[in-house]
Structure formats: C-alpha cells, structure tokens
Computed example of a mutant assay.
Amino acid sequence: MPQNDLTERVRALNERYRHHSATSVMHQALKDPYAGKLALVSSFGAESVVLLHMVSVLKRDTPVIFIDTELLFTETLVYQQDVAERLGLTDLRILHASQNSLWMQDPKNDLHKSDPDACCNLRKTLPLQAALHSFDGWITGRKRYQGNTRTALELFEVEEGTHRIKVNPLAHWAPEDVRTYIEENNLPRHPLVAKGYPSIGCMPCTSPVMPGENPRAGRWRDTDKTECGIHFVNGKMIRKGEHA
C-alpha cells in the first residue's frame, strides 16, 4: 500500500476512535478493516497483563508475539507461562534470534555491553520484523506518561520504514489507570514490580528504579538509549524528521 494511503488510514483511525476508551479502541481495531490484520506484541513485562487480558476477553485467538531474547529475567519467563495459561491465550508465538546469527554476532553474549542498539537489533528487531511480515499492524502497550519519545503518542501511528500501523490503546492512560485495571480484574503482577522494577526488559540492561525517578529510568541506565529495539528500524532509532 502506498505510504500516503497508509498515512490517511492512520489519520482516519485516530479521528474515528479519538474519544473511545482503551478497551473500545482495542475491540474496534481488532475488527476494523482499516486496521487490518493485527498481532499483539507483548514483553510480558510490568504492565503487559492489561492488554493481554483485554485480548483474552475480546478476541482470545489474537496472535500474541513474545520475543525471548535469551537475556530475560527468569521471573519474566515464568510469568509469561503463568499468564498465558491463566488467560487462555490460544495463539502465543515465541520468537528467538537464530542460533547462527547469535553465534556469528554475539558469541560471548556480551554485545549489550559494547553496542546495546546492535544487541536489540539482533535479538529483538530482526526476529520481530520477520514475524510481522504477514500482518498489517501490531498492538503495543506504549503510553505517553512513559516520556522521552512517547510524549506525543497517538492511538494509531504509521510504523516508520514499513507499510504497517501500530496501535497504542493505552496511549492516554495514566499510571493509576493501569493499577486500577489490574486490581479490578484481579490480574497477577510481574514479581519484579514489587522489587522496584516498574519497567522490565533484558536482565543486563534493566535496574531497579528509585522513588521519584521516571518509570523507565532503569532501562539502559547511564546511557542515552531510551527505546526498546522493537521500536527501531534497521537497528537505529527513528526520530521525527528522519527516514529509514
């Protein structure tokens, strides 16, 4: 589809659902032809259970993509299995980087120390981009309050460098909205949340967050990196005005 047509689709979707609740945005997106065929990409992290629960209620057979970087916390892997079983997700797809790629580019499992962007590209972006070829778009859990590049986040956006859209049902939610949803639906929390991890990624690149810090301050601490590799194109961050 031409990029200008995709941009018009996203504009129309944002206009159509601008005043809808997150649950309604999710529900409508999963059946709106303008949105196309969607998958939910989930890290099974600190707040992931919200969208996973919505999907389990609205359309349980929605494809759910989980990227196992092989550098995740053990707690995340156990939580992923528990939540998927509890919610009855019927189309869970677990991705890995190819062993050949890991052997060639990160034989000592230490690429994250010298080049975290390249590590994200190898372990997250490349496997995800391959898996998304058969989809028109994907659902993310990003929110404006997470700051940095997310402060102007829309419900629907064009994924830079592709012909896909991203759906961000929780874009306008506040932290208390997340907590309330989890509590009201009696959903299990990731065990690391109680240990000071409000945002959870790979083990080597995630640290606890101190009171008063941005929730994502523990991700790639003491570097200028602010985004997960799946929101990169070809291994680099795409900022406003840049193109892949």
Rank of each mutant, 00 (worst) to 15 (best):
Q146R: 11
I238H: 03
W138V: 00
G161E: 14
S21C: 09
S101W: 06
K236D: 05
E227I: 06
N109Q: 11
V209S: 07
G201I: 04
L87N: 02
V25R: 15
A29I: 02
L87K: 01
D68C: 07
A244G: 14
A171P: 00
V158D: 09
R93Q: 15
A152C: 06
Q28W: 11
N148A: 14
V178P: 08
L187P: 01
R86P: 01
N186R: 15
T23W: 12
H20R: 11
K166V: 00
L153Y: 07
D61W: 07
P107E: 08
Q99K: 08
P107R: 14
R144M: 04
V50L: 06
I165D: 12
V25C: 11
D115H: 07
E160W: 10
Y181P: 03
Q28E: 15
Q28M: 10
E157Q: 15
K195V: 04
V209T: 08
D117G: 03
T226P: 01
L6H: 04
P127D: 10
N109Y: 06
P127N: 08
G212D: 13
V83I: 02
E75Y: 02
Q129E: 15
A130E: 12
C228N: 13
A118V: 00
E176F: 15
T125I: 12
Q3I: 13
R93G: 15
R219T: 02
L92F: 04
V209L: 09
R9H: 05
V78Q: 08
V50S: 01
E184A: 06
D68T: 10
N100Y: 12
T140G: 14
K143R: 15
D106I: 02
E159F: 11
S24Y: 10
D117C: 04
D91Q: 11
V55N: 07
D224C: 11
M210I: 08
R216L: 03
V50K: 00
T90I: 04
R93D: 12
F66T: 00
I230T: 09
E8C: 02
D136N: 05
A29H: 06
V57F: 07
L128F: 04
Y145R: 15
K195W: 05
L38V: 03
A12E: 08
E227V: 03
V55Y: 05
G241A: 00
C205T: 02
E176Y: 14
P208I: 14
H20V: 01
R189S: 06
P204Y: 11
N100K: 09
T162V: 01
R9N: 05
D177M: 00
G88R: 12
V83F: 00
E75D: 08
E184K: 06
F156N: 07
L187D: 05
R239V: 08
M1F: 06
R219E: 00
E8K: 06
E159A: 10
K236H: 12
C205Q: 05
E183L: 07
V25E: 13
K124M: 06
R18V: 01
Q146E: 14
R9G: 04
S101P: 01
V50I: 06
K108E: 14
A39L: 13
E160R: 15
W220G: 00
A46S: 10
E157F: 03
R142L: 14
S42L: 11
Y145V: 05
R164H: 04
H243R: 09
E159D: 13
E47M: 08
E70V: 11
N185D: 02
I139W: 09
P175L: 05
T62P: 02
V83W: 01
V178I: 15
P2G: 09
L77V: 13
Y79W: 11
R142D: 08
D106S: 10
Q146N: 13
S56I: 01
F156P: 04
